[in-house]
Each structure stands twice: as structure tokens, then as C-alpha cells.
């Protein structure tokens, strides 16, 4: 019987070791076991994007991975963006552009934008819209989010 397993992983540069039930999703592990509640959980079937984190550098739905599958992986969550009190340029741009209201979608959008900007230099507005199409926001109407991401790409480029 293999209903629990020991896993080791790195989250935001810090090493963790934990015994987890094999049916626990990665997002529940992050929030419930590691107390990293910055990652949000919405639909739990891959559609809303709120739970998006980076797994070995790739934006991934953490509701569609089991915690055991992250054994040996290097994760980055929204808590890993800021450098101490110093916000990440993406977070500053979101703040400046009012790209969040309730903030539910924000962690997933930030992690999505993180990979998107790493892979796409000088994106067009069209590309940004396509890039964030897998993340649902019920508050902002997206325009300020698109603007924030374009702002960061212009700062960088």
C-alpha cells in the first residue's frame, strides 16, 4: 500500500521534507502543509488559473498535480517574487495600474506573467492577452492587468 509518501522539494529557495497522502493535490500541500497561502485555489479543475505556480520554471496548475509528483522539484510561488520588503517589478506594476481588486486571481496572474515575460520580449498587447487567456479575473476587466504586464516589458526592454 502506498497511500503516503515522503517527499523532498524546494519552494522559493527553501528546502522542505514532508510525509504526504498520495491523493493530496500540490496546491493543498502548499497551502495546508507549508502554510504558503499566497497561492489561491478556485475551480480545482484547471480552468481558472488561480493556482498557477512555477514547477521547475514552467507555469503549472498546482490543482492538477499531486504533491507526490513534486518530489525533487524546484517550485516558485507568489511568495518567492518579492525580495524582502522590495516588491518584484511585476507586483509594483500591478499596484501602479490597479490591476487587482479582490486579489483572488492575482497570484496566478503574476506567476503566469512571470513565465510569459521571460519567454516573450517586447510583447504586443495581443500577445499579452493571449498569454493571460488561461487566467480568469472577475473584477478588473483585464485592461489594467494587460497594461501592467506591458509596463514591465517596457521597463525591461
Amino acid at each position: 500500500m502506498t497511500t503516503e509518501r515522503n517527499i523532498r522539494l524546494t519552494v522559493n529557495g527553501k528546502a522542505y521534507e514532508s510525509l504526504v497522502p498520495v491523493r493530496m493535490t500540490l496546491v493543498d500541500f502548499l497551502r495546508g502543509e507549508l502554510d504558503l497561502t499566497g497561492t489561491h485555489v478556485g475551480c480545482e479543475h484547471g480552468v481558472c488559473g488561480a493556482c498557477t505556480i512555477l514547477v521547475d520554471g514552467s507555469a503549472t496548475r498546482s490543482c492538477l498535480m499531486l504533491a507526490v509528483q513534486a518530489d525533487g522539484a524546484n517550485l516558485m510561488t507568489v511568495e518567492g517574487l518579492a525580495d524582502g520588503p522590495e516588491l518584484h517589478p511585476l507586483q509594483r506594476a500591478f499596484q501602479r495600474n490597479h490591476a487587482l481588486q479582490c486579489g483572488f486571481c492575482t497570484p496566478g496572474l503574476l506567476m503566469t506573467a512571470y513565465e510569459f515575460l521571460r519567454d516573450t520580449s517586447n510583447p504586443t498587447e495581443e500577445q499579452v492577452r493571449e498569454g493571460i487567456s488561461g487566467n480568469i479575473c472577475r473584477c478588473t476587466g483585464y485592461a489594467p492587468i494587460v497594461q501592467a504586464i506591458l509596463d514591465v516589458s517596457q521597463e525591461a526592454g
Partner: peptide, 10 residues
């Protein structure tokens, strides 16, 4: 926990 109980092999 969302999924029902299962045995896991990798």
C-alpha cells in the same frame, strides 16, 4: 482531499 483514495505507483 479532492480525489478519492487510490494507491500510487511511480
Amino acid at each position: 482531499m479532492k480525489p478519492a483514495r487510490f494507491d500510487y505507483y511511480s
